[in-house]
């Protein structure tokens, strides 16, 4: 069996306590919620924190409440998110995305906050230490010993996916982030220095290494969904090899508000797993005021697919993934149009 390195564990007594512990622990401390992402990473020595601060049990993070919309705590389990009646009814994109993560067992452990903070993925990176040693590591996770006796560039300098690139192209693989961004969600971040509220899309940066804009000692405590709106339709399409448990190689989330005469009054389409961050398709705004005719849908799908920059670091062939992105975007929009028409 692969074994995790030694670490200390602190079961936080409150969010405040967790924030303090996180701050005190500095770069050696990490939060752990369900651990379904972090524990495999520990075993592979992708992360080697000396201190883990557990937050999954904190009541204050495990509630789904009504506020000015819906407020979902950061440690609510994915299975609860997927089964919540309000979520199912008013935010179907989220229910679908959460319900399509991994397997039932993992959804029973994995949390929404953990899913939003999920490490980026790459088939050169999600590997054991020994495996990565055999490629002499890469810039996202340089080896502790700084390479070994072979004639390759040192790992901290190179990205094997794009060897002349100065950056890391690891892939944002969270299912719920695209859905939540499409739905216009905001998140609350709490640290011992205070609290702030940002649109979810601003949590992410297009960088496989520094993929979160938040500082390391901020805790994602609440996800805020905008007030329910009967005119909004949303969906999430996920592409993966096996419906039973794979990560997405493409996620398409779409939320469209239909106004007068079936014209679009607001639209947000987000692509997941095609870049280091969820991609909010800028052309979404151009849908406003138009009807989702076949021409409009196809033209938009072309534009959206152009933002998909799949690399050879996930499952399935990259050229094909790009082609399918077009189909999925068009399919998702048609689904919304039909759902609206059926009302």
């Amino acid at each position: 069996m692969m074994r995790a390195p030694d670490f200390r564990y602190h079961a936080a007594r409150s969010v405040k306590d967790a924030a303090r512990a996180l701050k005190d622990g500095g770069p050696d401390a990490m939060l752990i919620a369900g651990g379904t992402d972090l524990v495999p990473n520990l075993k592979r020595r992708q992360q080697t924190p000396a201190l883990l601060i557990g937050i999954r049990h904190l009541r204050e993070l495990r509630r789904i409440r009504n506020g000015k919309g819906l407020m979902i705590g950061g440690a609510v389990r994915l299975s609860e998110v997927a089964a919540d009646r309000k979520v199912l009814r008013h935010y179907p994109a989220l229910a679908r995305a959460a319900g399509l993560v991994a397997t039932p067992q993992i959804r029973n452990m994995g949390t929404l906050g953990g899913n939003l903070c999920l490490d980026t993925r790459c088939t050169y990176y999600n590997q054991s230490y020994e495996w990565r040693q055999a490629i002499n590591f890469c810039m996202k996770a340089p080896g502790a010993t700084g390479g070994h006796a072979c004639a390759t560039p040192t790992g901290d300098a190179i990205c094997w996916v794009a060897t002349s690139s100065p950056r890391c192209w690891a892939v944002s693989s969270t299912d719920t982030a695209p859905a939540l961004i499409a739905l216009g969600a905001r998140v609350t971040l709490v640290s011992s220095d205070g609290e702030r509220d940002i649109p979810l899309e601003e949590l992410y940066a297009d960088d496989g290494m520094a993929y979160l804009t938040k500082s390391a000692d901020e805790i994602l405590t609440v996800v805020h969904l905008p007030p329910e709106d009967a005119a909004v339709r949303s969906t999430y399409w996920k592409l993966r090899r096996r419906g039973s448990f794979d990560f997405p190689v493409l996620g398409v989330a779409a939320a469209v508000r239909f106004g007068e005469g079936n014209t679009v009054s607001d639209a947000r389409v987000v692509l997941g797993a095609v870049a280091s961050h969820p991609v909010l398709v800028p052309e979404s705004a151009e849908l406003v005021g138009r009807r989702l005719t076949d021409d409009v849908v196809e033209a938009f799908a072309d534009a959206a697919a152009a933002h998909a920059k799949p690399m050879d670091n996930t499952d399935l062939a990259l050229g094909w993934r790009k082609k399918v992105a077009r189909r999925y975007v068009a399919g998702a929009l048609r689904e919304l149009k039909e759902a609206h028409a059926a009302k």
């Binding site: 088939t123 055999a134 490629i135 002499n136 072979c150 004639a151 390759t152 060897t163």
Partner: peptide, 9 residues
């Protein structure tokens, strides 16, 4: 750049 040949997955 490298002589590496690794099992992909």
């Amino acid at each position: 750049l490298s002589s590496a040949l690794v099992h992909k997955i």
